[in-house]
Amino acid sequence: MALQAIAFYLMAAVTLGSGIAVVSAKNPVHSVLFLISAFFSAAGLFVLLGAEFLAMLLVVVYVGAVAVLFLFVVMMLDVDFAQLRQGFARYMPLGGAIAGGLAIEMVLVSTAVATNGAARLNDTPMAAGAHAPLGVTNAEAIGRVLYTNYVYFFQAAGLVLLVAMIGAIVLTLRHKPGVRRQVIMDQVLRTPKTGMRMVSPKQGEGTDA
């Protein structure tokens, strides 16, 4: 148990420290790197909770894909640091209010879970601190809940993502006239017969081909 406690406090400290560093780092690339560190130690906290499936998904999705794109964009931006600093005082109250609201929400949720137990499954509240039944892996437990009780929400979330994806494609896809596009089929189907023409020009005349 002591080992787990040490691991928890270590990773919680890293998460919080990186979270603060994300907003306080001067260089935006460093901010993103700290964000990655925060994601990663949050995944470690998930593992400690026994939610290894969620932990791996957090790393795959956020660290492996989302943050790479962040980094990609931030690296290519030409950021004016002085201008970035200017807005700090103006946005501070709003940011603080949102952070406070989230903190209150988290406290409320935690106390609710601590007193009333975790999620309701089939209208029977699970005891506080209860784990999935033995012999059922993490992924299986999530799958059972996701595809039975919450299948409509799950499908709705999928639809939202699909719409977002189509929207991104529609916004960026432009067919400019006059742009020559590569047609792979034509290139692959090209043979010596279609791609080559033999001419025998007379001496001193040349050829138009």
């Binding site: 990655i36 290894e52 795959v60 660290v63 492996g64 894909a65 993490n138 992924a139």
Partner: peptide
């Protein structure tokens, strides 16, 4: 028990 996902996660971090 999510070993394959672990490998996938670690290899997806290799880009960093």
């Amino acid at each position: 028990n999510v070993g394959i996902l672990y490998l996938f996660a670690v290899s997806s971090m290799g880009v960093y």
